[in-house]
Design a protein around this nucleic acid. Structure first.
Lengths: 334, 334
DNA sequence: CTGAAAGCGCTTACAG
DNA sequence: CTGAAAGCGCTTACAG
């Protein structure tokens, strides 16, 4: 039998109202009474029942997060780091994170997870949808909580959006390869249709254009973001194209591509210059260490959490797109 | 206004009791009535309010998980994978996972997190405690839910325990190095006091003993499980000891140590044979690819979830220690 | 300065 | 075969 507000009230000799007000600091209570209440709470090791609170307050102090992490061995570092950033901020506000991982690539699954969240009375939703067109959210999302999109720009639903500067990051990477004299540059990127993939392709094209290099379709491979497809994409591009540099636009694909280069004993950067995406520790232990574009993933999570907390606290300004700067981290691979 | 059981009852023209019984399949309801109820539920897009359910049922369908993931860049793959295994099983049972990450190394923090869980009315706790002595759980854990320990064997509190065969795995690794002719073998392992670290040291000693090799204290370095300390430990051991082989007993330390070997351009396996711990994709992209001891981390998570579900469903058999077999995955580093 | 009481949305003994 | 009503543990308008 865990003790509730009633037991505390009993022991302190006051009403449950008073106990509640002491806990929530929501009306004046004499110091003397307060002391008695606190004492009783300590004695009984009182912990509020959050189910009762949620029911009564019609909110759960919980934010739902949906991310697409495929069920491969290589969890996607990126979203894990984002989640940690979110956690950190929510914790400060006394909020919890309910994490749901869409490991299928199905919109139906995403809908199911949102319904579950609704059932849990979430106060806000942060989502990296597998789809660019999120108009289906209109029928699913309860209208009474804010939605914040991360990593992918939504279409068909309005909300804040936190995303890194993919065009800029990609441009930067390709430009730096060009600066080193490369003109035949391959690109491996995630499936198009997702904002980040689209934009990273744009950045690539932009850099070529600016330097008067013709864009060549067959030097670009798009694929799902798995270790295996990173491997296969590298294989495909290197067996058909005569490239001297390769840019890979996310961390999982980068890892897979490196495996191929490693297997084939391709010398980096002399045979092939490589720039990867996302700066995690493992990029330091390849031979040579990888040059990468770093996205501020932890910060992205923090930002998303801050924005959603503001919305919950009645920030009614119009929806904004927040762009986070990327950075070129130069190591030995180019 | 989200619709509740009341609205459904109204629309279907029955009592709320009947709706509840239809939902939970908990007493006979005529097919005709059922149909009306289902229709109303669909129309109103009814979703049970889980706060109300928790309050009424005195359970939350939620399991708490506490893991120690340090706040370094390199999240610990191991626990992430374990968590995914847990998720998978819980999901099948309609349970949720509340994840709490103890990123400090403080017991106080762990206590706080458990109190929070209590407040959330968790139905069970899965924990990889930072401490071997978990007797403090006696004052903190509400007596009405089961506790399952993972990765570390508890002292001072009884419960089921799921853990891999660390002695065997470690023995296997060291024996295979000895088989290749190595006699001067270094060991980098996590801080002692944690079951897995202790046991992996035991396995190391056991292999030496069996082969008549004297144990040499200074060839063993223990440290916290961060990338940096992996790096530092490798540096320390290699600058003071004349070893020909190195065994590192967890994935984060392995990554850090590899960074040092990489920086120093130490040739693997000719200058130094290396065996790491935990089989993740990144071990394939070092030069050469790493030989590792694989623990079944996903399975470990699944097992933990199954055990706790059984306990919740009144399995009253005595507490058991479940040992999961490890496996030597041979690649190029030894 | 403080208390009695209603009600959040469910489930379930009780009654018919 | 089904309904009326109590109660889970909170918060908060209302009353004094």
């Amino acid at each position: 039998m865990r003790s509730g507000i009633k037991q505390v009230a009993g022991m302190a000799g006051v009403s449950t109202s008073t106990v509640s007000h002491v806990i929530n600091n929501t009306r004046f209570v004499s110091e003397e009474t307060k002391a008695k209440v606190f004492y009783a709470m300590k004695m009984l090791d009182y912990r509020p029942n959050s189910a009762a609170q949620s029911l009564r307050n019609q909110r759960s102090n919980t934010i739902g997060l949906i991310v697409p992490i495929l069920p491969s061995d290589t969890s996607n570092f990126f979203f894990m780091t984002v989640a940690q950033g979110i956690q950190k901020v929510l914790h400060k506000h006394g909020y919890h994170l309910l994490l749901s991982n869409n490991s299928t690539e199905e919109i139906e699954e995403e809908k199911e997870q949102i319904k579950l969240f609704n059932s849990k009375q979430i106060d806000g939703l942060i989502i990296a949808s597998i789809s660019e067109d999120v108009s289906y959210l209109n029928e699913i999302v309860a209208t009474d909580y804010p939605v914040v999109f991360i990593d992918r720009k939504p279409k068909g639903y309005t909300g804040d959006c936190i995303i890194s500067d993919s065009v800029g990051g990609s441009f930067h990477a390709v430009q730096s390869l060009i600066d080193k004299g490369h003109r035949k540059i391959g690109l491996i990127t995630g499936n198009l249709g997702i904002t980040t993939s689209n934009e990273r392709l744009v950045g690539y094209k932009k850099a070529l254009l600016k330097n008067g290099i013709a864009y060549n379709d067959s030097r670009v491979v798009t694929s799902g973001s798995t270790f295996e497809s990173g491997f296969e994409s590298a294989k495909e591009i290197l067996s058909t194209q005569d490239i001297t540099a390769l840019f890979i636009t996310n961390n999982v694909l980068t890892m897979g591509a490196m495996k191929f280069l490693q297997d084939e004993k391709i010398k980096i950067p002399s045979d092939l210059a490589v720039i990867g995406f996302d700066d995690y520790d493992w990029t330091q232990i390849t031979t040579p260490p990888l040059t990468v574009i770093r996205q501020p993933s932890f910060d992205l999570g923090m930002k998303a959490a801050e924005v959603i907390m503001n919305r919950i606290n009645k920030d009614t300004s119009s929806y904004k797109e927040h762009r986070l700067k990327t950075e070129l981290v130069i190591r030995g691979s180019c």
